[in-house]
């Protein structure tokens, strides 16, 4: 799901940065409110866990691979703003140090894997709060929502940026991007995120690693 540099038209990059900047400012304020001696080690650890979990590339049929994100776990424990900012930080490190995801596309990636995943997770979690499967289903929805955003952003590129019939940036349209990206996340990576979120959430609750969160 990490969109590389060169895959999105300059206009897409500008719009995604313009949309993400104010959201990052709000998210930073929310993070400041939540950080204290008790939450800081846990939020930092879950961010590190998000980074690590994205390194587990899972091969799937069809010759591609993917991974979970870890945004959902942070979103249900600390809210969607904190989760969005933590995942954005992870994505920034991946882009700058490891060339995983582009710099020009960082905002698009942060909107999808950060904000989209976190907010969709959070509201689905709220909806099913008292159910045992809530962390699973909200994790699954988070990843599938993020992948939907990525598929649409990629799939519209040939429509908005072509020259003499040749696409200038990402060349495949929505007809290919939507089934490939959303389908694989519905069937595989969303399930992985759901299972991960469920196990990790149960572990954190049963070991009382965060005050105020109970089963």
């Amino acid at each position: 799901m990490h969109i590389p540099d060169g895959y999105l038209s300059p206009l897409t990059c500008i719009i995604t940065y313009a949309a993400a900047l104010p959201l990052w400012v709000i998210a930073f304020r929310k993070l400041k409110e939540k950080l204290d001696e008790q939450t800081l080690p846990l939020i930092a650890s879950l961010s590190a866990l998000s980074f690590i979990i994205m390194m587990f590339n899972i091969p799937i049929p069809g010759g591609t691979s993917g991974h979970a994100v870890g945004a959902s776990l942070i979103a249900i424990l600390f809210g969607p703003w904190v989760a969005s900012l933590c995942v954005s930080l992870v994505l920034l490190i991946q882009a700058l140090i490891f060339g995983d995801g582009g710099i020009t596309t960082f905002a698009a990636n942060a909107l999808a894997m950060g904000f989209m995943a976190s907010f969709s997770t959070y509201y689905i979690y709220r909806f099913f709060e008292r159910k045992a499967f809530a962390p699973f289903i909200s994790g699954w929805v988070g990843i599938v929502s993020a992948s939907t955003m990525v598929a649409v952003i990629l799939g519209i590129q040939p429509l908005i940026a072509s020259s003499e019939g040749k696409p200038l940036y990402f060349p495949f349209g929505l007809d290919l991007a939507i089934p490939a990206v959303i389908g694989s996340h519905m069937l595989f990576f969303g399930v992985v995120e759901g299972i991960f979120t469920l196990i990790a959430y149960r572990y954190i609750v049963s070991n009382k690693l965060l005050k105020g969160v109970s089963a």
Partner: peptide, 17 residues
């Protein structure tokens, strides 16, 4: 595609891990 061919690229410190 031109944009992909001429993509902006910063040299990564640890490319592709």
């Amino acid at each position: 595609p031109e944009g992909i061919q001429n993509a902006f690229a910063l040299p990564s410190i640890i490319p592709d891990y």
